[in-house]
Write a protein that binds this DNA or RNA. Structure first.
Lengths: 175, 175
DNA sequence: CAAGATTACTAGGACTTCCGACTATTTGCC
DNA sequence: GGCAAATAGTCGGAAGTCCTAGTAATCTTG
C-alpha cells in the first residue's frame, strides 16, 4: 500500500501552516532518516547472500586495506565512527563466522587485533562487487545528485567534529 | 580523540586504489549513514528534556496535524514509513508517558486510534520549538546544501517507491 | 450468506547501537 | 620506582527497528 503522495512534502506543508519554523531543515533531516532506512535495507539485502550486513562489511573492508590485514579494535571503531561496544559486537559476529580472528597485539597486552582470515578476504571481495552492482543502494539519484549530497554531508560531518576543518598544511608543518 | 582526516575520503581513496568500483556511491552512502547517526544524536539530545526521541516526536507531530488529534495506528505507520510493530512500540511509550491515549475506532473494531492528550499537545509544541532552535541538527550545512540534499534524497525516495513518480493528473483523473 | 482473502494490530524474538561500569594494562610524572 | 591518569576492550542493560506469526474483525465473491 504505497502512499499516493510524498509524506515528507506533506509534513513540510503542515510545518509551514502551523508556523513551526525551520520547515526546510525538518524536511532535509527527515529525508536523511528515511534515505538511511532505504539504503540500509537495500544494502543488507544485497549482502545477505554473503552472510554480511553493512556494519560487518565495513569492518572487513577496513581490515582488507590495512598492510597486515589486521587492526586493533579501537582503531576500527575510530575509523568507522562507532562505539567501542559496537566494535566488540561486530567482531564477535565476524569471528563466529570465521571471517576474522582475534589476535593479541605483539607488544601491547591491552590491545586485541582483528585479523582477516582467507575466508574473510574472499567474502569482502565478493561483497564489494555485490554492492557496486547495486550502486550502494543509491539507485534513483543521478551522479550530480550523489556528489552534491556527498559534498553537503561532508560539511555536516566536518562541522560535527568528525575531522578537522583545515587540511594539514604541508609546506609549513611543524619542523 | 577526533580523527585528523576524513575517514570517508580515506575510504574512497582505498576503494579507487583497489579497483572496487562505485567509489562515489560508496562515499555518498556511507556519508548518509554517518549523517543519520549525527542527526539522531543531536535531535535526541535536544528532545531529551522533553522526554521524547525523534520517532516519538514524529508520531506526536502527525497527530497534532490531524483534524481530531487522533489517527489509526496503521495510518501513522504509513505516513512515518515504519513497520507496524514499531508503531505499536512507539505508541506504547507515548501512552505510558500520558502523551497519547489508545481509543477504539468508532466503527471499525479492528482499528485502534492514538489520540493526543493535552499533555501530549503541549509536549509536541515545545519539542518542535526545541528542534527548530537547533535547525534539526543540520548545523554545518548551508541553506543551499540543505535544499540540494533534500532534492537528491527526494529522487531516491521516489525511486524506492515511497510515492508515485507523477503528480496525479487533475484534468484526466478517474471519473 | 458463508468461506476465503484482506486488513489492523500485537506478541515474541533477533539484531544493532549506545551508555555506564568494570578489569587489565600502559604511560606520565614526581 | 611507584602511584595517578589514560587507554583498550568487554559485560550487562536499555532502546529502537525489523521480521514472522498469530488473533480478531471486515470485506469480497460466488
Amino acid at each position: 500500500m504505497p502512499l499516493s503522495f510524498d509524506p515528507i512534502a506533506e509534513a513540510r506543508r503542515n510545518w509551514e501552516a502551523h508556523g513551526w519554523g525551520a520547515a526546510d531543515r525538518m524536511s532535509a533531516a527527515t529525508s536523511i532518516t528515511r534515505a538511511h532506512q532505504i539504503l540500509l535495507h537495500r544494502i543488507d539485502t544485497a549482502l545477505e547472500p554473503h552472510g554480511l550486513v553493512f556494519s560487518r562489511f565495513e569492518a572487513l573492508a577496513l581490515l582488507s586495506f590495512s598492510r597486515t590485514g589486521s587492526l586493533p579494535l579501537g582503531k576500527i571503531g575510530d575509523r568507522l565512527q562507532v562505539h567501542p561496544t559496537s566494535v566488540t559486537n561486530t567482531i564477535d559476529r565476524l569471528e563466529a563466522d570465521g571471517l576474522v580472528a582475534r589476535v593479541p597485539h605483539p607488544t601491547d597486552r591491552r590491545t586485541t587485533l582483528a585479523e582477516l582470515t582467507d575466508s574473510g578476504r574472499r567474502a569482502v571481495t565478493a561483497a564489494a562487487a555485490a554492492l557496486a552492482d547495486i550502486g550502494y543502494g543509491l539507485d534513483g539519484m543521478s551522479d550530480l545528485e550523489t556528489s552534491r549530497t556527498d559534498d553537503a554531508l561532508m560539511a555536516l560531518r566536518q562541522a560535527a567534529g568528525d575531522f578537522p576543518p583545515d587540511p594539514p598544511a604541508r609546506t609549513t608543518g611543524p619542523h
